[in-house]
Structure formats: C-alpha cells, structure tokens
C-alpha cells in the first residue's frame, strides 16, 4: 500500500483543532498528523500531542566535554611546566578558571548548534505536501497515511471545515 501525504488548510484555529479531533476519531495515529503554522501558537492550542524536546542534553554534553578537555589542558600544562607563581600551588584552580570557562562555553555552543539541527528535524528533506499560504496565516493540518485511508481523511478534513485539501503520493 503506497503512502500519501495530505494537507488540510484552515483559516481559523478552532477548525484546525476540530480537524485533529476528527482525525483521531477516524482512527489515525497522532504521530502521523501535525499542525503547520507560520505563527508560534501556544503549545497545545489545537489540542494536539505536544512533543518533548531534548535540546538541553546537547549543551550539557558539550559543556561536560569542554570542561573535561580544559581541565586536562590546563592541569597537564602546569604539571609539565611547573612554575611557582606568588607562592601559590602548581595546580591552582583560579589560574585555570578563565580557560575552563571559555572552553566549556564554546563546546556547549557548538553542540547546541548541532542539537538545533537534529532536534528541529532540519534539514527537512521530505517536506511532504505544503502550502506557502501557511506563512501568510493559514493553518495546515498535515497527515501521512496509506492511500486506502484517503477518503476517510478527506471526510475528516471536510467535516471540520477545511478551505482546501491537498494531497501527494510518495
């Protein structure tokens, strides 16, 4: 059975929310439909399943790696070239703080940028069916389903007041 991508376009948020309810009632899995908006509506505004992001893990991982590397770099440098300054111990934390901070931050930033691409599913290679009017304010409800469910999906979209329904096979 071939898979198709469908998009229902709505001009008000309530109709889009009704469409999600209708799709759920028609037996579609909530992982297979999504709301597309050009505006950041509050999470759950359409009664949709709110995915949890794990973006915070990336900077945390990066920070730990950066901190470890910086501690290694500064402590080994001081051990290899032991110079007593102002009577302070060879391994004094304050002499290492600046470099530790900088390396930790930079590493966290780099992994965050990688995380952004990963967590946002960017680049989105299979953009499915899309409509440029979404960035003008229309709300899209996208659905991926098998071709035999097309009519059921169309009924759900029409029943909730879709302005237009678009579909494409893949």
């Amino acid at each position: 059975m071939s898979k198709i991508s469908m998009l229902g376009l709505y001009d008000n948020p309530d109709s889009a929310a009704d469409a999600l309810d209708a799709l759920s009632e028609a037996g579609f899995d909530s992982n297979n439909f999504d709301v597309l908006t050009g505006t950041p509506y509050p999470e759950g505004a359409f009664g949709e399943h709110v995915p949890q992001h794990r973006l915070f893990r990336f900077p945390l991982f990066g920070a730990i790696v950066g901190l470890t590397l910086s501690v290694f770099l500064t402590s080994t440098t001081q051990i290899v070239y032991p110079l007593v300054t102002g009577g302070k111990p060879i391994l004094s934390i304050f002499a290492m703080l600046v470099i530790m901070y900088e390396m930790t931050m930079l590493s966290a930033v780099i992994t965050t940028v990688i995380g952004i691409l990963f967590e946002s599913r960017l680049p989105n290679i299979s953009m499915n069916v899309y409509d440029t009017r979404i960035t003008e304010g229309l709300i899209g409800v996208s659905l991926v389903c098998t071709s035999d469910k097309k009519e059921t999906a169309e009924r759900a979209f029409n029943g909730s007041g879709a302005m237009e329904i678009k579909s494409s096979g893949r």
Partner: peptide, 8 residues
C-alpha cells in the same frame, strides 16, 4: 532548512 512550522 525545510522549516514548515510543525509543533516540534
């Protein structure tokens, strides 16, 4: 990068 405004 293919941003289409999904919830995620």
């Amino acid at each position: 990068r293919g941003f289409i405004g999904t919830e995620r």
